[in-house]
Design a protein around this nucleic acid. Structure first.
Lengths: 202, 202
DNA sequence: CGTTAGTTTGAGGCAGATCAACTTTGGTGG
DNA sequence: CCACCAAAGTTGATCTGCCTCAAACTAACG
């Protein structure tokens, strides 16, 4: 857990609570803070000129967020939205700068996080032009549900994560239910046959 | 230029020459070195199980490469291929580790590079499900050609950068030629009307 | 000047988006 | 606690952008 490591160096920070749907920062804004997710789930979404949203990253208990824009010295390229009730630790830019100088290991950790994120987004991007929607949706169901078994992922969120539409997500999920690989439970769903699901090809 | 900054700290390194088409490291390999591009152009390509290639990043005079896998402590997730005659500076992992400890600013620089790369790949990914192929190919033509005006980009490379196929690239380029926005010159092409090309919608 | 890698063009098909109408779910406030 | 309603999900019909396959052409290099 990243925050545990940072905490000893902090002189001041504040803790805030966000309710479901609340926006933590907006695409286009200038970064003022770095955030740690203490409890909850936050999604990073990019929205294009035409209004299409893409679900880029998940921040979860223990994650840092806002660091990319801070380190790149850029505006936020996407918005952070709480997907459920979330508590955050907020650290100002100045405070962050101070700690980075004091403790270089911090940058090392951030670098490793970004290196992994860069790798996984590049693989997702490659999958986007290679795999069928069905395969991508299956991958997303597995990823999202295994990571947060108790969160109810909406069809829209799954669609935006897999690069698809919510109608197609519905269709694929119906198909998977008929095959007994998942089970719908109201708006939620449960993975029944993990193994078959992983190796599922349409 | 990144290398100029690092050079004073180096105790030993070697310089190698790659000819066009030569693979510097393979997807799946375990990282042994960090590389600086001294002169030339290198492409980073990911290849899927089914054989589809994606052109992920360009490394050019002054770029570092191999740092992502090194920092993430992962295998290479993609292959580096020289796109023309290229000279590289090779630095071993050990040497790299030594310098990083000695000079924390190095990690800071790498972090900034990755932060920018992460941002731009996330925007490209978002464009992949939002924009038409035509738009994506136009974007890629602009990006690749403005960055390396003297390099002859193949239709295949443009396709793999834009997430398309070389036949579609050909068709779009023919269309753009007819409109007088670009001009084909053998296998090469020239941008005629930069401004119109930027704002071009099919 | 032959060979190979790269390019062009055409025809055809289909995966998945879009549009539309209807149903279900689950939270909330009376 | 129940009734209501907005938000979320389902399902069907249609349409088209782009990929795929195929075949012929051309540039460039040894």
């Amino acid at each position: 857990m990243f925050f545990k490591f940072v905490k000893p160096f902090l002189q001041n920070y504040q803790e805030i609570e966000c309710k479901k749907g609340e926006v933590i920062y907006y695409q286009g804004d200038t970064p003022q803070n770095i955030y740690f997710v203490h409890e909850g789930i936050v999604g990073l979404f990019h929205i294009t000129e035409s209004g299409k949203e893409t679900f880029l990253r998940i921040f979860t208990s223990g994650s840092v967020m806002g660091h990319r824009s801070y380190l790149a010295k850029e505006q936020y390229h996407a918005s952070s939205v709480a997907l459920e009730k979330t508590s955050l630790i907020v650290i100002s830019r100045d405070e962050c700068e101070r700690i980075c100088l004091e403790e270089p290991q911090l940058i090392m950790n951030l670098a490793q996080i970004m290196a992994k994120d860069l790798g996984s987004i590049e693989l997702r991007m490659s999958g986007l032009s290679d795999k069928s929607v069905t395969k991508r949706i299956v991958d997303s169901l597995l990823f999202l549900k295994l990571r947060h078994p108790h969160h109810i992922w909406t069809r829209k969120e799954i669609a935006e994560y897999s690069g698809s539409t919510f109608e197609t997500v519905t269709r694929v999920m119906t198909q998977l239910t008929e095959l007994g690989l998942i089970e719908k439970q109201g708006r939620d769903f449960k993975i029944i046959d993990n193994k078959k699901l992983i190796s599922y090809k349409d």
